[in-house]
């Protein structure tokens, strides 16, 4: 699962194509126009490489950190079947991180460098995981609706131009479909259960709705930068388009269960065919993504602790004569 890659709006606009060989650039763009994929050893513009590393790396970190709020509930899952399923889901998320780190590595950044950027707080990850899963129902809402959002994002990106990222995402999407069904099953179980269960799932939905609306990120600024990233098939859909697709697919399913979405302005606008909603609080989003959320500090502390405790094992297994080679595909 994953939120859309976050581009800092204050990032200095780049002279993106400065110093690029015009002939190679033309060949590169022609290949993408023909629908062909770019492979690791191909020539690519510096900006293409940089943005893909940033995007795939953030995605990988999101999988790792995303396992934490849900993993919290493994020890307290209601029943053996739910516990097995949740363990399988959490293992999948960590597996996804590994697939993604590998895809990013083919672009020339080592896994150690990426993990270091995560534990020092330099790299971002999806903002939603800076919120706590306070009850079992929170973990169910995450599994259903956050994973639903992730699938919309990942299906779009799997059609992007970079071969290794597309291949990783195809494998990931297949596994996410289990997460989605599992999450839906959990939510339906609670929503059709006792009054107490219904109340619990309603409260979880109310808590998670703002982060869900933040999930796809703020409206894209229409800039030269975005236009080039879309032309290069790095970015495949606008944040607003993905948010609309999510609302279209899932709001009716939430309403089917008689649950209340905590937004009085939420409705399908017959005239435009789009959903009207209250504009999410983007100041809150920025505050949380920049470290001010309820769980930012503990997520990184837990991650640093895991790296620290495993270090001696990895070191003991390291063979003296081994040397690093960038993975092939």
């Amino acid at each position: 699962m994953y939120g859309n890659a976050y581009i800092d709006p204050n990032e200095k606009p780049l002279s993106i194509l400065d110093g690029e060989d015009p002939i190679k650039l033309a060949e590169f763009e022609a290949r993408i126009d023909r629908g062909e994929k770019i492979e690791p050893k191909d020539w690519m513009p510096k900006e293409y490489r940089k943005q893909l590393i940033r995007m795939i790396e953030q995605h990988a970190h999101s999988e790792i950190i995303g396992a934490l709020p849900e993993g919290t509930w493994i020890t307290r899952a209601p029943g053996f079947k739910r516990k097995l399923a949740l363990m399988a889901k959490v293992q999948d998320e960590v597996g996804h991180a590994q697939l993604l780190y590998s895809a990013a590595e083919t672009l020339g950044k080592s896994r150690e460098a990426m993990i270091n950027d995560l534990i020092t707080g330099k790299s971002k990850y999806s903002n939603v995981f800076n919120y706590p899963a306070l009850t079992w129902a929170d973990s169910c809402i995450i599994a259903w609706l956050i994973d639903a959002g992730a699938i919309i994002n990942q299906v779009a990106n799997s059609k992007g131009s970079y071969g290794p990222y597309g291949r990783a995402l195809e494998r990931i999407c297949v596994e996410e479909s289990f997460h989605l069904k599992y999450g839906h099953h959990n939510v339906v179980t609670l929503a059709t259960g006792t009054p107490f269960q219904r109340q619990m799932v309603q409260e979880a939905l109310t808590r998670w709705w703002p982060p869900i609306m933040h999930f796809f990120g703020p409206s894209d600024k229409i800039s030269n930068h975005t236009t080039i990233l879309m032309r290069w098939k790095v970015k495949m859909a606008s944040n607003d388009d993905m948010r609309q697709q999510f609302l279209n697919m899932y709001v009716p399913k939430i309403w089917d269960l008689g649950l209340v979405v905590p937004d009085v302005n939420l409705k399908l606008n017959e005239a435009t065919g789009l959903w009207d909603y209250t504009e999410p609080d983007w100041d809150e989003f920025k505050r949380v993504i920049n470290g001010g959320g309820p769980c930012n500090a503990e997520r990184l502390a837990v991650r640093r602790n895991a790296e620290e405790k495993g270090r001696w094992v990895r070191k003991a297994l390291l063979q003296k004569d081994s040397s690093y080679v960038t993975p092939l595909a």
Binding site: S102, E105, S110, R111, E112, I115, N116, I119, T120, A297, E298, A301, R304, N305, E307, E308, R311, R314, K315, L317, L318, S322, S323, Y324, V325, P327
Partner: peptide, 16 residues
């Protein structure tokens, strides 16, 4: 929450 940041060394994650 403010445990030390000890960056990973090269090859910490082994070969591929």
């Amino acid at each position: 929450l403010n445990n030390p940041i000890n960056p990973l060394a090269d090859m910490d994650q082994w070969e591929t």
